[in-house]
Amino acid sequence: MGTYKLILNGKTLKGETTTEAVDAATAEKVFKQYANDNGVDGEWTYDDATKTFTVTE
């Protein structure tokens, strides 16, 4: 398990959240659902060194 971070750079929603997941693929699924639930759809990037996903609208 590891802690993964999501940085939201949406047009109307900005912020950060974290999740505990077994791997990056699992964290990505959780974060994409979170972003979708909050109406954020954009370009995704992932930094393996910091376990950080970023979505920018």
Rank of each mutant, 00 (worst) to 15 (best):
N38P: 01
D41W: 14
L6A: 03
I7F: 07
T56I: 08
T52N: 02
A25M: 13
G39Y: 06
G39N: 10
A24S: 09
D47R: 03
G10F: 13
W44R: 00
E57H: 06
K51D: 03
D47A: 04
A21C: 07
Q33C: 05
K29I: 11
V55Y: 02
V22N: 11
E20R: 08
F31P: 00
F31V: 02
G2E: 15
D48Y: 09
A25F: 09
D48K: 09
F53N: 00
L8A: 04
V30T: 12
L13C: 13
K5R: 15
N9R: 12
K11E: 06
W44V: 02
D47N: 10
T17H: 14
Y4R: 00
G39Q: 08
T3F: 10
T19W: 08
K11S: 12
T45H: 11
E16N: 06
L8Q: 02
G2T: 15
V55R: 01
K29D: 06
A25R: 10
K32D: 02
A35N: 02
A49T: 13
T45L: 09
T3R: 10
L8G: 02
T12M: 12
L8N: 02
G15M: 15
L8W: 12
E57A: 07
G15H: 11
K29L: 14
F53D: 00
T26V: 07
D48N: 10
Y34S: 02
N36V: 13
V30W: 15
K29M: 12
L8H: 03
E43T: 14
T50D: 04
K14D: 05
L13K: 13
E20C: 09
D37N: 09
L6D: 00
E43I: 14
L13A: 08
D37T: 08
T45E: 07
I7A: 04
V22Q: 11
F31N: 00
Y4K: 00
Y34F: 11
T26F: 07
I7Q: 05
Q33M: 11
T18V: 11
D41E: 14
M1R: 07
L13P: 03
K29G: 06
E20T: 12
V55H: 02
V30Y: 15
V55I: 10
N9I: 14
E43V: 14
V22R: 10
A25N: 09
T19N: 04
E28Q: 12
E16T: 14
A49F: 09
A21Q: 07
G42D: 02
T50G: 04
A49P: 08
V40A: 05
K51W: 07
I7M: 06
G39M: 07
N36D: 10
N38R: 15
A24D: 05
K14W: 09
E16H: 11
L13T: 13
T52W: 02
T52L: 04
G42K: 02
T52D: 01
T52E: 04
T26W: 09
T26Y: 08
T3H: 09
L13N: 09
F53M: 02
Y34N: 02
T52H: 02
K5I: 12
Y46C: 01
V22C: 09
N38E: 07
Q33F: 05
N38M: 15
A49L: 13
A35M: 05
A24F: 12
D23A: 03
N9C: 12
Y4W: 06
T17I: 15
T26N: 08
E20L: 14
E57M: 08
K5P: 01
T54K: 06
A21S: 06
T17M: 15
D47I: 05
Y4V: 01
T19A: 08
K5F: 14
A25D: 09
G10T: 15
T19Y: 12
D23V: 03
T17R: 12
K32S: 04
V55K: 01
M1D: 06
K32V: 06
G39I: 04
N9D: 09
L8V: 13
D47S: 06
D48A: 14
G15S: 13
T18S: 11
T12S: 11
N38S: 08
A25T: 09
T26K: 06
G2I: 15
V55L: 10
T50V: 06
N38L: 15
K14H: 10
F53P: 00
E57G: 05
Y46Q: 01
T3A: 08
Y46G: 00
D37L: 11
A21N: 03
T18F: 13
N38G: 04
L6V: 04
E20W: 14
L13W: 14
T17W: 15
D48I: 11
Y4H: 02
E20Y: 14
E16P: 03
L8T: 05
T26I: 06
K32H: 09
V40G: 02
G10Q: 04
G10W: 06
A24W: 12
Y4A: 00
N38I: 14
D48Q: 12
D41Q: 13
D47P: 00
K51Y: 08
M1A: 10
A27F: 00
L13D: 05
